[in-house]
Simulated assay, not measured.
Amino acid sequence: MVRKYRRQTSRQDWSLEAMEGAVNAVIEGHMGSFRAARQFNVPQTTIERHVVKKRANPGYTVVKRLRPIDSVFTPEQELAERSNIKHPFNTAAKSVGRDLLNGLLARNPTLPIRKPEATSIARAVGFNRVAVDRFFDLLESQLDTFKFTGDRIFNCGETGLTVIPKGHTKVVALKGRQVGAVTSADFCDCRNLCFSVGVLRTTYVNLSSETNATSGGAWAEVQETGWMTKELFLTWFKKFIAFTGALKERPILLILDGHKRHTKNLELIDVARENGVVLLCLPPHCSHRLQPLDVAFMKPLSKFDKDEVRMWLRTHPGKVATLHQIASLFGKAFIHSLQCPQQ
């Protein structure tokens, strides 16, 4: 990178006084635009443009147009300029250059240029300090009351997986030719999966109506649409109780979102009370920031699942991945996600 940028052209490298003199000389008939350009050292086409404007409007004054960058000088920057404080701003154009941005990023390696994530207005408004503080106060009170240890705290979350990944890895190819990647179909057929992840233990349920094989430690439940329901979640919850060994004498904390299948499922609440499971719901529209599974687990899981699907398609030419393979592919991705160093 060039430390100090040097202009490659001399555009607008003239003074307002010289341009005013050249325009007036042409309008008053003392000389033509060609001679005025030579004498005043200004562009001829610029003189002719301003002459046309001034003849149409006698009150017109020549204005030197800045580059298509708005002025960013703030009162603080103006004060620094008046106080003779050294700064990297362009005082002539009153704008910020690329050198200032590059220098700022070099001095602050924790401030990378990032692509923002699309966030709904409900989540943007719902995720606030009051709601977050109330949740953590409630969490702290439950920890003090039941004395939960790390192996008795779980987080439950759901995600959808498919055998038709949306994105594809980049490849090296010749220019001018269309590059394609084989997929199992043109549309996405999604299946929901429910997880519960703790410090030392993990369990999940695959909700696919056509899967004929599951990974070790998993089981399948049937739902035609592939979406989670109250009945299916209750079935998963009973499996979760058996897996964790929850008892009233040894309670378990389960953190989950506030979906109606959780909060308005009276049978689920009764089963939780009978088996010593404390249900703690996240604040509305805050799971994208507060739920551990969404923050640290679902993204690598989705990535590894897509990688497994692509690998299967490459090692089985002429075949397509269907819901019959989703469980075995997901099992490999699940193990890779647990071993992901990002967690």
Rank of each mutant, 00 (worst) to 15 (best):
V2A: 14
R3F: 14
Y5E: 08
R7L: 13
W14P: 03
S15D: 08
A18M: 13
A18Q: 11
V26F: 06
E28I: 09
G29R: 03
S33E: 07
R35E: 15
R38S: 12
N41I: 11
Q44S: 13
K54C: 06
T61Y: 15
L66H: 08
V72Q: 12
P75A: 05
F89R: 11
F89I: 12
N90K: 08
K94I: 03
L100H: 15
L105V: 14
R107E: 12
N108L: 06
P116W: 06
A122M: 11
G126C: 01
V130P: 00
A131L: 01
D133G: 09
F136P: 05
L138D: 15
T145Y: 12
T145A: 12
F146N: 07
F148L: 10
F148I: 05
T149V: 04
I153S: 00
F154I: 02
G157H: 04
T159G: 13
L161C: 08
T162R: 02
T162P: 05
V163P: 00
G167T: 08
V172A: 13
V172P: 01
V179L: 02
V182D: 00
T183Q: 04
L193S: 04
R201Q: 09
V205P: 04
L207E: 04
L207M: 15
S209Q: 07
G216L: 06
G217C: 05
E221G: 14
E224F: 09
E224L: 14
T225E: 11
G226K: 02
W227S: 08
M228K: 02
K238H: 07
A242E: 11
T244P: 04
R250F: 08
I252W: 07
L254Y: 06
L254I: 07
G258I: 02
L266V: 13
N275C: 04
C281R: 07
L282S: 03
C286F: 07
Q291H: 01
F297E: 01
M298W: 11
K299E: 11
L301S: 04
F304S: 03
R310W: 04
L313N: 01
T315F: 00
G318H: 02
G318N: 03
V320H: 07
T322Y: 02
H324P: 00
A327K: 03
L329V: 02
F334T: 00
F334P: 00
H336L: 14
S337H: 01
